[in-house]
Design a protein around this nucleic acid. Structure first.
Lengths: 148, 148
DNA sequence: AGATCTGTAATGGTTAGACTAACAGTAGTA
DNA sequence: TACTACTGTTAGTCTAACCATTACAGATCT
């Protein structure tokens, strides 16, 4: 799967966590651990779909413009990575007489499509707010690890 | 996803279709449209798990040693491509103080793991024999396309 | 012995993906 | 108006993953 999905989710969760601030691409990039230009590219996608608001110039940056409890990971997946489940390489050859070789491409395509749909169905149940909760739950468990 | 999954499925379906023959890696490679050495590598995996039988030397090759109606694509997926759903790139940094950045890796890992499980659940319902049927159904529809 | 297979490892080429630099556009501020 | 600090976007470089290919040892039949 495309890692832009990961970046988009991370950025949205971070904005939900720091909802009082306006976050710059430098700040988000530091947190995500990548380059600011990459953040701006992904955020540009999210802006066009109305998930974030952008402000250019001094004091600018990104803020959330959606309800993190209502945005599902399935939406974000479709936006950033739909179709990336299927490997680019394809087997078979439509020109062959053998019905196995000739029809393998479309049949495998439909299998990958259905598999992806089933994955999306799971992501449908996960929200940005839910991910933030999981992160905070993980944080609360941390001090125990130190005592080992 | 890894394309070895596609190759394994294609090869098994082909062996089920040509169950009277012994198929060589050259023959399968031609049908799949790849290199014989790649076929031998994947078939070696399938042999170790008991899905196919191998015969070396003159007149050798591969035959099916399983019931194509009972082998699911989920088994083949796990064998060839388990874990390949998750992108190799990871966001966040465990060393950071910010609970979002520090805990993103394990939380995203569990999301990808669950998403993969849901995909496997679908593949559980697909068998080698089922794929062969889909191929034959697609073949039967072909002559109509010629008349357009 | 020689021909025809598989088993497996090593190498090379190509492509996708991530990093980075660069710069135009925009918006505040003095 | 000039300056500064942001985003928006494109293009170039680097790297890692992946597929193709070569090579050769081992097995089996005639």
């Amino acid at each position: 799967m495309n890692s832009e999905f990961t970046i988009a989710v991370h950025s949205l969760v971070l904005l939900a966590y720091k909802s009082d601030h306006m976050a710059t691409s430098d700040y988000i990039a530091m947190n995500v651990a990548t380059h600011p230009a990459r953040i701006r590219k992904v955020m540009s996608l999210l802006r066009k779909q109305g998930y974030v608001r952008t402000k250019e110039g001094i004091g600018g940056g990104f803020t959330l413009s959606c309800d993190p409890a209502k945005v599902t990971l399935a939406e974000i997946y479709r936006l950033t990575s739909l179709g990336t489940l299927k490997p680019s390489w394809c087997s078979g050859d439509p020109g062959k007489e053998c019905p196995v070789s000739a029809n393998m491409k479309p049949v495998m395509d439909s299998i990958f499509f259905e598999a992806e749909l089933n994955m999306e169905r799971y992501l449908e149940g996960q929200t940005i707010a839910g991910v933030l909760e999981q992160l905070q739950a993980a944080e609360r468990l941390k001090p125990q690890a130190q005592n080992q």
